[in-house]
């Protein structure tokens, strides 16, 4: 037993009294909390700098995706814009609407899929649901709508370009 007086060698090896040990632990915890606090402040600074001075690059110009007849009603086509690694998905709904969204859930970046005949896009990771016509969140944990691209037609060809949002209403 540690308190046995016959062998007190451990007291030489670890010469800290119980009361001191308790205090050291709580002091270290308080300092660690302060370190975490500093880390969070730095993180907030990074977010502020990134948002204000290095905004995300927008899609430049128009990009060909596929021909109209390659995509059946209720079908989807994944594509990547040249020069970017962001995956997108082009959806042709059963009502013949064409929509293009980033194929990354806004929750934890899982791939999202169009659920045929439902008019909804599903994120299978945490059961998140988006409206296939607007990209708005319908249910689940995603905090933001899916980023969207404009779909335009040139004859039978389908092109995408940066989505032009309507002026914000206050």
């Amino acid at each position: 037993m540690a308190t046995n007086n016959k062998d007190n060698q451990w007291k030489v090896d670890f010469p800290i009294q119980q009361l001191d040990a308790t205090q050291v632990s709580r002091r270290d915890f308080a300092k660690f909390l302060c370190l975490v606090s500093g880390g969070l402040a730095v993180g907030s600074g990074y977010v502020a700098a990134k948002a204000n001075f290095f905004p995300a690059e927008k899609v430049q110009g128009e990009h060909f995706v596929c021909k109209k007849d390659e995509l059946p009603q209720g079908g989807t086509k994944s594509f990547v814009i040249p020069g970017s690694t962001i995956p997108y998905v082009l959806i042709r709904t059963e009502k013949d609407d064409f929509r293009a969204y980033e194929q990354k859930c806004t929750h934890l970046s899982c791939a999202v899929f169009y659920m045929p005949k439902s008019g909804k896009i599903e994120c299978p990771c945490h059961n998140g649901w988006f409206d296939a016509l607007t990209g708005e969140v319908l249910a689940g944990p995603p905090p933001r709508p899916l980023p969207r691209l404009d779909v335009i037609f040139k004859g039978d060809d389908i092109y995408v370009r940066e989505f032009e949002t309507s002026p914000k209403t206050l």
């Binding site: 909390l33 302060c34 606090s37 402040a41 907030s44 502020a48």
Partner: peptide
């Protein structure tokens, strides 16, 4: 983002002074 950063920095300095 920027006001949130200022508030976060303020809270860190308060904690550090604390």
């Amino acid at each position: 983002a920027f006001p949130a950063f200022l508030a976060s920095l303020g809270l860190f300095l308060v904690g550090f002074g604390w």
